[in-house]
Design a protein around this nucleic acid. Structure first.
Lengths: 144, 144
DNA sequence: GTCAATGCAAATCGTTTGCATGAAC
DNA sequence: GTTCATGCAAACGATTTGCATTGAC
C-alpha cells in the first residue's frame, strides 16, 4: 500500500502508542482528526461507510478503536446527557459547550477566567484535576 | 393509613403537582429529599429495599417516578459520564462537582464568579440558559 | 509463525414500553 | 366507577464480549 503523507503520519502516531497499524484504526483516527465536530460511534461508522464505501468496519471495531485512541490520548470524549458519548480531536484547545436543546447544535467557547477559577477550586481542596467538562443547556439564538 | 408530618408534606407536594399520591412516589421522593447525595435509579431501588423491605417497587416505577418528579421540579438530575443519570434534591443550592475517579466520591462546590461568567457568555451569544452542569474529574486528596 | 485485531453474533446494561391488574380519586 | 399508577416481562438502543478468522509484525 502506498502511503501518502497523512497516512504516514497516522501510521507513526498509532505505532508510537505501541498499537498495530491497521486500516480501520487509520480511517477512524483520520476522521476524528479531520473533523471539527463531536461524533458518536454511530456517526463515525456512517462517515466511514460514506467516505470509504469499499471498507467494511464493524461497530465493535469502532468502539474498541475509540477506547484505545482515547486511552492513548489521541482523541477525547465527552458525555452529553441524551446524546451519549461523543468523541473529538484532542489537539483542539480545551473548550466548553453551549448545547441547544431545540436544534442540538453544540457551540464551543473558551474562557480563561473559568479555567483559572476551576484550577483554584481544585487546588484549595487538594484535588488533582485530570479533565473537566462543562455544558450549558438552553436555546440558541436561532431557536427562540 | 396514619400520616406523620413528613408523609403529609410529601402528600401535599405530590398532589400540588396534579399527581396522584401513591406510597411508591412518597417513598422515592422521601429518599431523595432526605439524601444529600446523588443517586441513580438502581441505587434508589436498593435504598427502598433496604429501608422498606416490605414494599415491592419495580424498577420501571422508579424510572417513571423519577421522570415525573423531575418534570415537576421536585428533584433534578445530572449525567455523569460512566455513572449514568443521577438524581438529587432540587432544593439544594445550585452547585458544580468534583468527581474522584478513584473512589467515586462527588464533592460539591459553588462559585459565584463562574456562574456569572457563564451567564455573560450566554448573553454575548444570545443563548437562553435553561440549566448547566460542570464536572471536574481527577483524584481527591484521599486518593493520591 | 505468532499474536493482536477484526467481524459477526450473542450478551449485557440501563432505560422504556405494552398490557393486564390494582389502587386513588 | 373511572382513570391513573403499578408490576411484570418484553422491547429497546448503546456498548461490550466470545470466538473463530484474518492480518500485522
Amino acid at each position: 500500500m502506498k502511503l501518502d503523507s497523512l497516512e504516514r503520519d497516522l501510521k507513526e502516531l498509532i505505532q508510537s502508542k505501541g498499537m498495530r497499524y491497521t486500516e480501520q484504526r487509520a480511517i477512524i483516527l483520520e476522521i476524528l482528526l479531520m473533523s471539527d465536530g463531536h461524533l458518536n460511534a454511530d456517526e463515525i461508522l456512517r462517515v466511514v461507510r460514506d467516505k470509504y464505501p469499499e471498507t467494511n468496519i464493524g461497530i465493535a471495531t469502532v468502539y474498541r478503536t475509540l477506547s484505545f485512541l482515547e486511552e492513548s490520548n489521541l482523541i477525547s470524549s465527552i458525555s452529553f446527557g441524551l446524546e451519549g458519548k461523543k468523541y473529538e480531536n484532542v489537539s483542539k484547545e480545551h473548550h466548553d459547550h453551549l448545547i441547544c436543546k431545540a436544534c442540538g447544535t453544540i457551540y464551543e467557547f473558551i474562557d480563561a477566567d473559568i479555567e483559572a477559577k476551576q484550577e483554584q477550586i481544585a487546588k484549595d481542596r487538594n484535588f488533582e484535576i485530570h479533565s473537566h467538562s462543562m455544558q450549558i443547556y438552553g436555546l440558541c439564538e436561532n431557536c427562540h
